[in-house]
Each structure stands twice: as C-alpha cells, then as structure tokens.
Computed example of a mutant assay.
Amino acid sequence: MKKNKILLISVLILNLLSSCAPKVKEGYDEKLGYSGNISISGAFALYPIVVLWSEDFKKLHPHVRFNISAGGAGKGIADVLTNMVDIGLVSRDLHPQEIEKGALPLFVAKDAVLGTFNANHPDAALLKTRGLTQAELQDIFTGNKYKTWRDIDRRFSNTAIGVYVRSDAAGAAETWAKFFKLSQEDLKGVGIFGDPGLAQAIKDNTFAIGFNNINYVYDLKTQMTTPNIAVIPIDKNKNGKIDPEEDFYSNLDELIAAVADHKYPSPPARDLAFVIQKNNASKLIKEFIHFVMAKQQQGYLLENGYVPLTDKQIELEFEKIHTP
C-alpha cells in the first residue's frame, strides 16, 4: 500500500509543479545545455523508468522542465494526438487509425504482463507447481466456464474466483487480452483503475486473480515478489505441471531473462514505446529520445525490471526519427 501511495503522490506532485511553473523557452547553450519543457503522459508500465530518465537528463540539462503523469496507455496516445503532451507512453500495439493520425511509435524497452494471484491463497503451492494453461486463463477472464477454483481443478478449494481487470484503457489489459486473441472489452471482472490499484486489490482478496506489469509484482531491491502477491506460471505445453523450462518466476532476474530469450510468451510479453507525432518532434524532444536510447540508459533498464533493446533495435528506432 505504501508503494502505491508514493506512486500516486509522485504523480500529483509532478503535475502540480509543472502546472505552476512557467514555460521555459526552448533552446540550446554550449555551457547550460538544452532548455525547454517536455510533457509526457501514459502507460503505468513505463512511468517509473521515465521518471528516472528525466532525473538523469536534468543532471545534464538543468534548465529542462518535465511534466510526467501516469494515466494509462489510452490516455497517453490520446494526449499526444491532441497535442496535450509531447510524448505518449504506450504499452500496446498502435491501432491503424492512430497511425493514420500521425502517431509514430519509438520502442524504448520490453517487459511483460503477468497473471497474478493472492500469495495467501490456500492452494498457492499447488498453483505454482501446476500452473494454468492459456485456455484456462482465458476461461477465467472471460467468465465463460469457471466460477470457483475447484471448477478448474478438483484439488483446488471450492471458493469463488475473484477476477479483477483494468477499468481504464490500459496497455496491460489490451496485451493480456491479446494473449487470448481478444480485446480489453472482452475481459470480465471487477474493474480497477491503474496498475497500483489492481495490484492492491489482488493483495486484499485471498481468492483473487488478475494481471500486472512486472514492476508492480516484483520488488526491485529484493528481486522477489512483493508481499501478498504471486505470479501464475503459464503451463505452455499443457501437461498439467510446470516443467523446468517453464519455471522462471522465482526472482526478477530469471523472469527478465525468460522474456529476453522468448521463453515467456509474447503476448503477454510486449514492447514499450514512446509515441510522438510524426515529423513534429523538436530538437529537445529528439535529444531526450537519443538520451533514452543511449547504451548507458538502456543498461539501466535491467536493474529496474525491464528488458533493454538490442543494438540493432536501437539503430532502427533512430532511423524512424531521422526519416522525413
């Protein structure tokens, strides 16, 4: 709960400071570096690392002001297409109509959406060794088949499944639904706003199940899952157990390696992107994007729960912002 409060307070403080601060004229000085304002909004998945990137960028360019808010991928793409912000944070594939309106995605990292459940569930040990198949998860999140845990497996407790989904237009929800070849609207359950809220709802209900981005499941310092939340292993080969090659959830490093090596399915592994309006990025925005793509900042991703891009991927993203 404390982590969620800190995140929400950070969002409010950043918005308050930016709304009160006067606009800084954009420019560049050899001694002072860049100056100007950068506004960013969108996916909860990218919010934590973008705050860190902005702090590092300001160390080099102290006259740059940032306005960063987390409101979901849907808000990020809407804000950038209506010129409310310079950069939208998006954690899903762009829709064709968004591309037609001039949205340009620049991939900056990779992460994954994880199926999550309450760690105090009476069948937690069995869930971790048995796992759930893609089909079982689909039936849970569409409400088509299972109402109690015992409906899934007779060894499970005869208690109602508490299904939680996202109430906001979220990249995590769309990516989780895409795992089942569905859309976010097809997911059924109690709607909760935001990643922090959904994680807390799962922690508060012993029989809950949901989904979250990596950074709201694992503690970056201990590398272990945060208290009262656990990951649902995916039984990829459908043999009723989690085999050694499917077992990579015990700590954050193992999971990130599995995402990078494509052992964890994609989706729900997914690309994370900055979205700008095509041919409408200022020199300051391009400089910040270059900064984020730099090897030092990409290396920073691993220790913060993300998977960095390869050198070839970075090269391709650079070409996007330099192609007329």
Rank of each mutant, 00 (worst) to 15 (best):
D186H: 13
N228Y: 00
V231K: 05
L132R: 08
T159G: 15
G299V: 01
C20A: 12
L94D: 12
L132D: 06
V85P: 07
F179G: 02
E303A: 07
G191C: 13
A294N: 01
G115V: 05
D123I: 06
V50H: 02
G42A: 09
K188W: 15
D271N: 13
P196L: 14
G210Q: 02
N251H: 01
G171F: 03
R92F: 09
A177R: 04
Q313H: 10
R130L: 08
A125Y: 12
D243R: 10
R65Y: 08
F107S: 06
A170V: 04
G162M: 08
V231A: 01
K59R: 11
H121R: 07
R154I: 14
A260Y: 13
L126N: 03
A201L: 12
N67H: 12
N158G: 14
L60F: 07
A173C: 02
A73D: 09
Y216T: 00
A260D: 14
N15D: 15
G143D: 15
V259C: 08
Q313K: 14
R270I: 15
F117K: 03
N215R: 05
A103M: 12
Y300N: 06
V307H: 03
P48C: 07
V11Q: 06
F44C: 09
N158C: 13
V165M: 03
L8P: 02
A73V: 14
I285K: 00
S266Q: 08
V275T: 11
I6R: 02
L8M: 08
E136C: 10
P122A: 14
G299R: 01
A273L: 08
G88R: 10
L81S: 15
N83Y: 09
Q313T: 12
I232M: 04
